[in-house]
Design a binder for these strands. Structure first.
Lengths: 236, 236
DNA sequence: TAGAACAGTGACCATATGAACACATAATGC
DNA sequence: GCATTATGTGTTCATATGGTCACTGTTCTA
């Protein structure tokens, strides 16, 4: 079967979609699926989803389902009827899309202590749970590639980042002053990225913790762009 | 179409089956269906059920499904794929809290400086712009009545609440230690609620600002339960 | 012992359903 | 302004799937 240049997002193992977070339409579709699940209903077929959203074409649904699958929100069984299974239950519960300013879904990769825990971009997995974040409210650019981390420890309290907070990170290179997730000795740590004499190092924002001057090249996994704080630290 | 004497259980409105309790085979099938449901799997098709039980014929499954339906254990949609829905689910069978819906939309009422800006519960309007917040992630109870405020000023920096942050408030009475939005002299201010000698007052968490001891009864508009921090302060 | 109920088999058919492919327009970001 | 991504439409097709019908064997009960 000839593969045209337009052929995209057909399988999860395909190249990653251009953006990791869900678009508005994808989120609507995902919420529709979750509502079915919540109400213990049979998973909808592609034509039932088409009817719900008023699409003239059933293929639009296939396109969106593939996108959701490639972003790790759902799991599908190819060629099987109604074979959509929700993987991420955390995101997008509000049934009224009109009430929402542009929310986006970002994958939550688990909590990391400021100073501990394994993290690699490669570990962004299909079944990672997501949190919903209002990109417009927090000034996050729509195309940003983001992930979430939960802070453990108080090494960054001087930067008003508390134990239990969730930080939203963007995959990009830092500029001095940024709060970054960095990989040191096989572990991820959250610190402020600073330079001295042209050499970068990681500054704790708590006098009780030492600065980290890497022996090897510093690997920056992401730059903090937002923070969420609630009460308690519910685990997913 | 000739209806044989053997014809039974074809529709729920047919005469009731000879026995109301499930036979052994029916019970096995019902447990199979329930296990799929418990494990959040896609409902099985008649042929998948056939394969599981090793039937040579797919019609055996149809027969059993009709029996289960006539005995009130399941609900089916005629002619639809995988359209089996469990009716008898013991309370709490799906005990995974992650299956609960999570983000809610809360009205954003505009930014208030810590110490300035007008706010009344009566002004909470249906068309007020909203932000989307992941309630589960932030540990916010589902029934909470909430609103959002944007902080302006640094009077609460000692509590790690920064200028430009968005705080999520809940309409309820405070306990000492809570961060509250209070109405003083016709204006709303964000402060910590403390008491001394049984008398409440509002404590700034920045030595540069005075504590506020109300001359009249203190009006508490809400208690802070979460915080969102992004970069910049985009306005809606 | 005979009839009813239960539990299947096998052949066949209609349609629900997922998916490929070509194409078009709008939105986004550099 | 252009390339890329997003979001579709429309046509077509293969197969997954539910269901009918005729039939058979076993078990249970009056």
């Amino acid at each position: 079967m000839k593969t045209s240049a337009h052929r995209k997002n057909t399988l999860p193992s395909d190249p990653k979609p251009a953006r990791l977070s869900l678009t508005g339409r994808q989120l609507e579709l995902f919420e529709f699926l979750k509502q079915h699940h919540r109400e213990d209903r049979i998973p909808p077929s592609t034509r039932e989803i088409q009817e719900h959203f008023g699409f003239a074409s059933q293929t639009a649904v296939i396109h969106h389902l593939r996108a959701l699958e490639s972003k790790g929100c759902i799991e599908r069984l190819p060629g099987k009827a109604r074979a959509v299974r929700i993987l991420n239950i955390a995101a997008g519960e509000n049934s009224d899309p009109a009430a929402r300013p542009s929310p986006e879904s970002v994958p939550l990769l688990g909590a990391i202590p400021a100073g501990l825990a394994q993290l690699r971009e490669a570990t962004v997995q299909k079944d990672a749970p997501c949190v919903v974040v209002d990109f417009d409210l927090l000034g996050i650019p729509r195309g940003a590639h983001t992930f979430a981390l939960r802070v453990s420890g108080d090494s960054m309290i001087g930067a008003h980042i508390l134990d239990g907070d969730v930080v939203i990170m963007e995959f990009r290179e830092p500029v001095p002053g940024d709060i970054v997730a960095a990989l040191i000795d096989g572990e991820t740590t959250l610190k402020r990225f600073v330079t001295k004499g042209g050499h970068p190092y990681l500054k704790a924002e708590n006098p009780a913790y030492p600065d980290l001057i890497p022996a090897q090249e510093l690997v920056i996994q992401g730059v903090m762009i937002a923070l969420l704080r609630g009460r308690g630290t519910p685990r997913r």
